[in-house]
Design a protein around this nucleic acid. Structure first.
Lengths: 327, 327
DNA sequence: CTAGCAGATGTTAGCGGTGGCATGGGCTCG
DNA sequence: CGAGCCCATGCCACCGCTAACATCTGCTAG
């Protein structure tokens, strides 16, 4: 910056102002400075700026894994909205390990981020303490049933599970299976499963825990899950799958076994993208607003940072059941 | 850090050393310092550290979009490997806009990152200049046919396109269509398309440009693409789709039209994940090593930063055609 | 007994910006 | 014509940490 200043015949303070407080600098001077900046390709050192400012324009996100369906979409929404506002996203994957989340967060906090975003509500005690002490705004995404550390943006997975069971019961299924990913360190899955069982009993069906099954999180897992469920319950006539891809797996297994969908078995998936609407038959899904969750989280952060009136602590973006041919 | 130092009865320099150069501090002192650090939850300010060090432990990545199939996987591999080594990933999405890539990069360079990672080789002149001037290691991922700014990790999309055409021709298709996403600002798509046409003529088939078609990048686009191609060429007997999801779309459209796969039409997709192997019929795909591309990029960076012997400038991770039922 | 040395810790300066106050020149107004 | 003021710019200190050099202590060896 000193070099730029020298070239423009001013001091570095004027350069700094020309860049960040243009209205404080005479137009002529500003133009001269900006020209030198453009010519030299000077890029201000943000680390140095942060040192004076206490908080950086970095937002830290920790998600379980980008490979998880939907995580990429959420992060996409987050990143798009943050970069528009001049913030940058520091991204980490905890791989569903709260201890690892804690470590990553500790490192990330060293950058004095403007905010911290996490998926889910399962954290170590130390993580909570650390965040509390640091005073950063914290957003937990995807789940709103628990008590947020600070703010939460997402949906009620319990309610989603419940409604999906009720939907299937209403459309006539009497023996409904629920396939889900690993509930370990993932309260979203647990809440969804609980909601599902609740829905069953509300619909007057037996909430047999055997109706829920943990599967591998991929299409093959869906196919296998269907096979297992059919062994357990010969009269199985409905399946709710954890994600769209797994629902596709279930559907393919039905094809292989020549089970009519939805005649013999109805299928419903979680998480809607363009795959469900293109399958033969088209798949009924529970649509969750992934990109919007990321986007909204970013907005909440920006509002908070710009000192606007405090948002609601918990923002429910809900879900929507989209009925298609498979039910 | 001063506070920690006071509590431990030393100066901040000793605290700094206890944290980063433990061997320089007497064991007793070190223990005392570390205990205070643990108790107070002190987290060193990385911005301040960077200011002394010239380069931060941040790696900046700019991808076109996380929504793109594969990008999430690549970034996942990158992030996992970097965090293991104590580096952090600053992520941006350019949305296929080189100008926007330039802006994002300019902002990111303000953090004096240890390295810059980008997908593709399409950049503005200013981007190249900026990177060159800053002297950061640069990795371009996904494509290795062009001239890299610095280093490249990926595969030859030209060769992939060529081999997929040859494969289809060898298995008996005579009129092969190629569905691809937007070639705008995406040289991967262009190279693949060129390779495809080259493959056709090598196989003695007419490399009619009408055999390639730009489609929307989703399953529905695949279905529509097939419809269009069948209108153009009644004798169409093979389709290569840009991604797995689009190949699934093509397959569903075949189901709807009762076109036997592979009897009437053979289908091949690009990018293998678990979906292809689960479809009925299972789909032949060109597998690219996405997670590995990210992982390897991270390794190349780490090697370079730790001053080990220079790697090859270009690392070809190749691709693999996985023959399944659909061809 | 003392020079010489090694290991542990302290001191100083500087990394590249920015806040807050000081300075200086030009203008307004009585 | 000079006091008073404002706008533009400069100066200085400091943000939190670390490289490089200085100092101090305790021991060894001659």
């Amino acid at each position: 910056m000193k070099d730029v200043a020298a070239l423009a015949g001013v001091t570095s303070m004027t350069v700094s102002r020309a860049l960040h407080r243009p209205e404080m600098v005479a137009e002529q001077t500003r133009e001269r400075v900006l020209e030198v900046v453009a010519q030299t390709g000077f890029i201000p050192n943000l680390a140095a700026g942060t040192l004076s400012a206490t908080r950086s324009r970095i937002v830290t996100a920790v998600v379980a894994t980008l490979a998880e369906p939907g995580a990429a979409e959420i992060v996409g929404g987050l990143s798009d909205t943050l970069s528009e506002a001049g913030y940058q996203l520091l991204l980490n994957q905890s791989r569903f390990d709260p201890k690892s989340e804690e470590e990553l967060l500790r490192a990330a906090l060293g950058w004095t981020p403007a905010a911290v975003v996490m998926s889910g509500m399962t954290h170590t005690r130390a993580t909570r303490a650390m965040l509390q002490r640091s005073g950063v705004p914290v957003i937990e995404m995807n789940e709103i049933d628990g008590r947020p550390i600070d703010m939460a943006v997402g949906l009620s997975n319990f309610e989603g599970g419940r409604q999906s069971a009720l939907f299937m019961a209403r459309r006539g299924s009497r023996r409904i299976g629920f396939l889900h990913g690993s509930p370990r360190h993932n309260e979203r899955v647990r809440r969804r499963r609980e909601g599902f069982l609740k829905g069953l009993s509300e619909a007057g069906l037996e909430p047999d825990p055997g109706l829920t099954l943990e599967i591998e999180a991929n299409p093959h897992g869906g196919a296998q899950g269907l096979a297992t469920m059919l062994q357990r319950y010969a009269d199985l006539d409905g399946i709710i799958a954890a994600t769209e891809r797994e629902a596709v797996g279930v559907l393919q297994e039905c094809l292989r076994r020549s089970l009519a969908v939805p005649g013999r078995i109805a299928i419903m998936g979680w998480g809607d993208s363009e795959l469900s609407s293109e399958m033969v038959p088209t798949l009924t899904t529970v649509r969750t607003m992934r990109y919007e969750i990321g986007q909204q989280s970013a907005r909440v952060i920006l509002n908070r940072l710009e000192g606007r009136k405090p948002e609601k602590r918990v923002i429910d973006l809900g879900f929507e059941i989209i009925p298609r041919q498979s039910t």
